[in-house]
């Protein structure tokens, strides 16, 4: 199972181990963590919620899209759900490829797609209230298609 949701803290090495293969010359790992300050506002903790069966399907779809673009890539993604404290790991994406450039690019592709098509929501709990965060990219998602070249942000 390369694509998971986890109610427990993510063991980063376990995600990496899933993409290790003899023909890989590079493994990139993206670790998304819970940030304390956002635009001057202090987050106390977060709650992630998912539409679980569909979220797993969409993570698998991202894996398939990466396979199409980078046929030798191996991808594994685990996203956390539930209550997370500051510095906790929210998501781990591991990608292996024969050469480093593809591993960086494919990993970047995966996180951008997560923010577009995977039904996971975060509720920020601030010192003075709470709010569901939506549309971090401030773009319309691409439910059926793929992001255009210019949509992968830097």
């Amino acid at each position: 199972m390369n694509f998971n949701l986890s109610k427990e803290p993510i063991v980063i090495q376990d995600v990496i181990d899933k993409v290790i293969k003899r023909n890989a010359g590079a493994v990139t790992t993206f670790i998304g963590t819970v940030r304390e300050m956002t635009k001057g506002k202090k987050t106390l903790f977060l709650v992630y919620e998912a539409y679980e069966p569909m979220a797993i399907k969409k993570l698998e779809q991202i894996g398939a899209e990466i396979k199409e673009r980078w046929p030798d890539a191996e991808t594994a993604i685990t996203h956390r759900v539930g209550k997370l404290d500051i510095t906790d790991v929210a998501v781990v994406i591991a990608v292996s490829t024969p050469h480093r450039n593809d591993a960086y690019e494919a990993n970047r592709y995966a996180i951008e797609r997560i923010k577009e098509i995977v039904p996971i929501w975060k509720k920020e709990h601030w010192e003075d209230g709470e709010t569901w965060v939506g549309n971090q990219l401030e773009t319309v998602p691409y439910p059926t298609g793929k992001p255009k070249e210019g949509d992968i942000r830097d």
Partner: peptide
């Protein structure tokens, strides 16, 4: 399922 703008990652 109605899916509000997502905010995973």
């Amino acid at each position: 399922a109605f899916i509000p703008p997502v905010s995973g990652g």
